[in-house]
């Protein structure tokens, strides 16, 4: 490629009017060595551009790690709802049991109160019967 042509292309290049093809021509010229002295600054430019393109992303891409975190969250919510349900169920049972015990205690208290009353009255009756016996004894003594 003759120098005049390159100079023309360089001018166009600076005005950002070159096509990709023309830029490749420039690139080939400037990276080949052998650059005219008055165009040397372009040599470092195009060499840099060529080198900069060689840099690559060397790490391995991770696609799954965060994804599994997401599904973990899903399973966590399932587990949480199961625990909640179980808790409500067990709680209800305990509450019912407690309620039954309370009722039983009330009934027990009522029954024992009734029985006490009965026994008191029975005792009164016994005393009456006892006096009756004493009375009968005395009567028998007199009659004899």
């Amino acid at each position: 490629m003759e120098l005049a042509n390159i100079e023309k292309l360089v001018e166009k290049y600076l005005n950002a009017e070159t096509s990709l093809q023309e830029e490749t021509t420039l690139k080939n010229y400037f990276t080949a060595g052998n650059v005219a002295p008055h165009l040397q600054e372009y040599e470092s430019m195009f060499n840099y551009f060529a080198i900069a393109k060689d840099e690559t992303f060397t790490k391995t891409l991770k696609l799954e790690t965060k994804n599994s975190k997401k599904s973990n969250f899903k399973w966590l919510s399932v587990a949480a709802s199961v625990v909640l349900l179980l808790g409500v169920f067990v709680g209800k049972q305990q509450y019912d049991k407690n309620q039954q015990r309370k009722e039983a205690q009330i009934i027990y208290a009522q029954v024992s109160k009734g029985l006490e009353l009965l026994s008191k009255n029975l005792k009164k009756g016994e005393q009456a019967v006892a006096t009756l016996y004493t009375y009968e004894n005395t009567v028998n003594k007199i009659l004899k």
Binding site: E43, S44, M45, N47, Y48, I51
Partner: peptide, 8 residues
């Protein structure tokens, strides 16, 4: 030409 390239 690493100097001039680094310059860029």
């Amino acid at each position: 030409y690493r100097d001039s390239v680094n310059q860029v």
